[in-house]
């Protein structure tokens, strides 16, 4: 870990000012940043500790919905009574991730900004375009069991590791940010990005911008939802494939639907066309399979991760059945519903 200047501002404007140097990193729960600093992957000259900022509330938004502060921990979010009641999909996804200790420290803003688990990104003695632009991608043609099958580029095949963000994508949350240019909101779909030719950019935050809150829209799909996560052991492991589904069922038909995938792309993966094709239809296995087909169109394996394509297809079908039946996946009972 390199030496750095540590600052602990008390208020947002000060934090934004300190964060605008281009060499600064915001420190919240620390669970990802400190890890990356120990690996010398992150080498900020300044660390701006934002833990004193007043971003720890969960409040109602006019017209329905909840605003979740960026510094609310993952655990406090998952166990908040309002979140549990209205957004059980989000709770489930959060509780599927990491460990209780990590969830107690990790914040919601930090969860959005956590970086890939790609082996090459993490090992500074290997090539990685995300870490050092121009080095090449070690994972292409390398060990890529955990890598992307969708939306990858010749520059980068990393995946986004978050579980929470998969649920937020399905919920169509809105990210509130503040930066040198002031405040703005980013639809969740636009927050993370695909690697393209700039794989070092995980998201669309402008330099110095800070996530302040996440707005959850009124529709929480509390009756029909699921978060299904498949991984290499039954807990405390990153997703190989995960599926978040939010569904509204009216008169036996799919009235509204969101599907987001984790572990398969550089961002939570959605295909609104595949969702649209299901609206108005009666839930059936054929319909679910068609949806899976639509979501995975163009999926491409890299060798070690080829299995993710059939795994994702089956996981999508199962997750849709779980949501339609109103039997969401438990994150404790490891039997898959």
């Amino acid at each position: 870990m390199n030496p750095f200047v540590y600052a602990r501002p008390d208020a947002l404007p000060e934090a934004v000012r300190l964060g605008a140097t281009g060499r600064a990193a915001f420190l919240a729960g620390g669970t990802n940043l400190v890890d990356l600093m120990k690996e010398n992957v992150a080498r900020p000259a300044e660390v701006v500790d934002i833990n004193r900022l007043a971003l720890r509330d969960i409040v109602e938004i006019d017209g329905g919905g909840l605003r979740i502060g960026a510094l609310v921990t993952n655990a406090d979010t998952a166990y908040d009574e309002r979140v549990r009641r209205r957004y059980p999909l989000l709770c489930s996804a959060i509780l599927a991730g990491a460990s209780p200790q990590l969830r107690n420290a990790a914040t919601n803003g930090g969860n959005l900004n956590q970086r890939t688990r790609c082996y090459y990104f993490y090992d500074v003695q290997t090539p990685c375009n995300k870490r050092e632009p121009g080095q090449g991608c070690g994972a292409i043609g390398g060990a890529n069991r955990i890598h992307a099958i969708l939306g990858a580029s010749p520059q980068c095949i990393a995946t986004h590791p978050s579980d929470m963000c998969v649920a937020l994508a399905a919920l169509e949350a809105v990210v509130r940010v503040t930066g040198p240019q002031g405040e703005r909101t980013i639809p969740f779909e636009d927050y993370h990005r695909l690697p393209g030719n700039e794989p070092w950019k995980d998201n669309t935050l402008a330099p110095g911008e800070l996530v302040t809150a996440i707005d959850l829209p009124p529709e929480g799909f509390a009756a029909h939802h699921t978060y299904l996560k498949l991984r290499d052991r039954l807990s405390y492991a990153f997703a190989l494939v995960s599926v978040a589904v939010g569904m509204r069922v009216e008169e036996g038909r799919v009235a509204d639907l969101r599907i987001a995938l984790g572990g398969v792309a550089h961002k939570p993966w959605r295909r609104p066309q595949a969702e649209a094709a299901m609206r108005g239809q009666a839930p059936s296995r054929e319909l679910f399979e068609a949806a899976a087909q639509g979501l995975l169109e163009g999926a491409m394996g890299q060798g070690d991760n080829d299995f993710k394509i059939p795994l994702a297809r089956r996981a999508i079908v199962r997750a849709l059945s779980q949501a339609a039946a109103g039997t969401p996946q438990s994150q404790t009972d490891k039997r898959i519903a």
């Binding site: 669970t31 400190v34 200790q101 990590l102 107690n104 420290a105």
Partner: peptide
Amino acid sequence: RINSCLKL
């Protein structure tokens, strides 16, 4: 409970 290795 937290992981003390990840806290400055």
